[in-house]
Amino acid sequence: MIGDMHPGDILGEYHEEVIQLYGLGPRKVLVTEREAPYPDGRLIVSRTDTDGIITHVNRSFVEMSGYTEAELVGAPHSILRHPDMPRAAFKDLWETIEAGKIWQGYVKNLRKDGGFYWVKATVIPNVRNGEIVGYTSVRRKPDRRKVEECIPLYASMKAKEEEEVAQ
């Protein structure tokens, strides 16, 4: 399950947005401008079932997301979805991994406290006995220059998506 974010969890000034989560409907998110630095030498690892429900997280995932392990396991992976991410990025991700291929890209993730962190994410289908049984996502520290390239790109993709919705 995934609910709206709570003001009591947020650190600092925030603004409110409503994002549409695929298959789950609207979620009210509370967003600040605080960026959490990615810790050196770590990998953030999670696994989901084929519906994107989290089944396993490592310690770095828990620390960076701000949620407890109990809050994360059983929640949809879109609990991390930041409103600045264009929907097209996740559409491409799901189409790629459901086809049994590996997806890689730069992602801005939302923390429980309203802050964010950038990652270089790689998602691989877990194929067992010829069938996809889930997905493993491994994030590492990104090259800042790649992140700086993604910021205007994602903003323009998102603006285009909003225009299409408005039409």
């Binding site: 990998l43 890689q104 790689t122 998602v123 691989i124 493993t136 491994v138």
Partner: peptide, 9 residues
């Protein structure tokens, strides 16, 4: 093995 494949991808 899956994790190693994400790192070598």
């Amino acid at each position: 093995i899956d994790l190693m494949e994400t790192l070598t991808y």
